[in-house]
Write a protein that binds this DNA or RNA. Structure first.
Length: 106
DNA sequence: AACCTGACTCGCC
DNA sequence: AGGCGAGCCAGGT
């Protein structure tokens, strides 16, 4: 099981209507410091249609930026469609929508 | 095969 | 309080 695959597994476990920070995903695969790799993993091989990468945001709730998958605002659009609360146009309300306990991926 | 870099996060200055 | 460096992995040059 490569680190990338673990990342994908963890991200797939994020429940609908919730978001997780890169750090949380990294934590879920056993290493918080892998946060960077988590982001790179999603960028390198998004496995379109399988991995809800729109549910992964920075720890302060900010989205990845306009260069992510569908295009600028696409991520926010998808998240809102799932009922995720936004504090502003590009910041998720982490206090409410962040996953409480992301299962550990082995 | 080695080096650089990239959707991050935290700790130290 | 804000800026910078370190730690992690994989893929391209």
């Amino acid at each position: 099981m490569t680190t990338f695959e673990k990342v994908y597994e963890a991200v797939k476990l994020i429940p609908r209507g919730s978001v997780a920070s890169y750090g949380q995903v990294a934590e879920a695969i056993g290493n918080r410091r892998l946060a960077r790799v988590v982001g790179y993993a999603l960028h390198a091989n998004p496995l379109p249609g399988v991995i809800p990468c729109h549910r992964v945001v920075m720890k302060d709730g900010s989205l990845s930026g306009g260069f992510a998958f569908g295009g600028p605002g696409r991520q926010a659009e998808l998240l809102r469609a799932e009922g995720v609360v936004f504090v502003d146009e590009e910041h998720v309300d982490m206090a409410r929508c962040r996953v409480r306990a992301l299962p550990l991926v082995l």
